[in-house]
């Protein structure tokens, strides 16, 4: 077992109680991710993509097997420590953006840094950098309701990236976007992945996303059926 990898998953099983019985959503997953990967979990609906992303993101715990993320054993992490892990090392991108509606673009991006108790001047610099990455420096004072869907998702990317986390997890980030915007944000994330060496893991069944992946992990019925490195459009 290579403990130096960013993520180490060994024989992961996840069962959900369903009625009186159990449903096995993930069944014997073995995976490793290295720093700087741009990987995607792909597969049909119900194959276990979100479930796996949840466990990697310390939002859920495995039923069996071991999952080690950035040096933390997810199975034995209490909710407090899990929160710390997410706060310090992870960024999340959701299908529906989930920006805080009463705050401006600037404040939405600033929020994760406030949780990290970063000083005012560092915060300002980091937020301005993040705005620059996603090309929204002119929308600083806008509220989410005043932005287009593509712009909202760019704010969400900036929010996930502003603290320069080791790992960004994105579940169906393009599901609500049109083709042009989907390509736009994927290019953005591919660029950030390259420049900042941030590891990205997607859960998607969108071909537009798949085109950009450097590694494609196919799931079916909770099992990995294929795991390949691909030469993608971005290269």
């Amino acid at each position: 077992m290579e403990q130096n990898s960013l993520i180490n998953i060994n024989n992961l099983v996840k069962r959900f109680p369903v009625g009186k019985g159990e449903f096995t959503a993930l069944n014997g997953i073995d995976l490793t991710f290295e720093t700087g990967e741009f990987a995607g979990l792909v597969g049909p609906s119900g194959s276990g993509k979100t479930t796996l992303l949840n466990i990697i993101g310390s939002l859920d715990t495995p039923s069996d097997g071991s999952v080690n993320v950035i040096g933390q054993d997810i199975a034995n992490l209490n909710i407090k420590k899990a929160a710390v892990l997410r706060r310090q090392h992870m960024g999340f991108i959701f299908q529906t953006y989930n920006l805080l509606p009463v705050y401006t673009v600037y404040e939405n991006i600033e929020f994760p840094l406030l949780l990290l108790k970063m000083s005012g001047s560092d915060r300002k610099k980091a937020v301005m950098d993040a705005l620059d990455w996603v090309g929204l420096t002119d929308k600083i004072k806008s509220r989410p309701a005043q932005l287009s869907g593509g712009e909202c998702q760019r704010v969400a990317i900036a929010r996930a990236m502003v603290k320069k986390p080791e790992l960004v997890l994105a579940d169906e980030p393009t599901a609500n976007l049109d083709a042009a915007n989907s390509h736009n944000i994927l290019k953005m994330m591919a660029k950030l992945n390259k420049e900042l060496k941030t590891t990205f893991i997607f859960a998607t069944h969108d071909d537009k996303v798949i085109q950009y992946l450097k590694r494609k992990i196919s799931l079916e019925d909770g099992k990995i059926v294929n795991d390949e490195n691909v030469i993608n459009k971005g290269e």
């Binding site: 909710i79 407090k80 710390v84 997410r86 706060r87 310090q88 999340f92 959701f94 989930n98 949780l115």
Partner: peptide, 14 residues
């Protein structure tokens, strides 16, 4: 509900 969810995901403690 959504706001609290995001805050939890981002790593704010309950």
């Amino acid at each position: 509900y959504g706001e609290i969810g995001v805050r939890l995901a981002i790593g704010e403690e309950k």
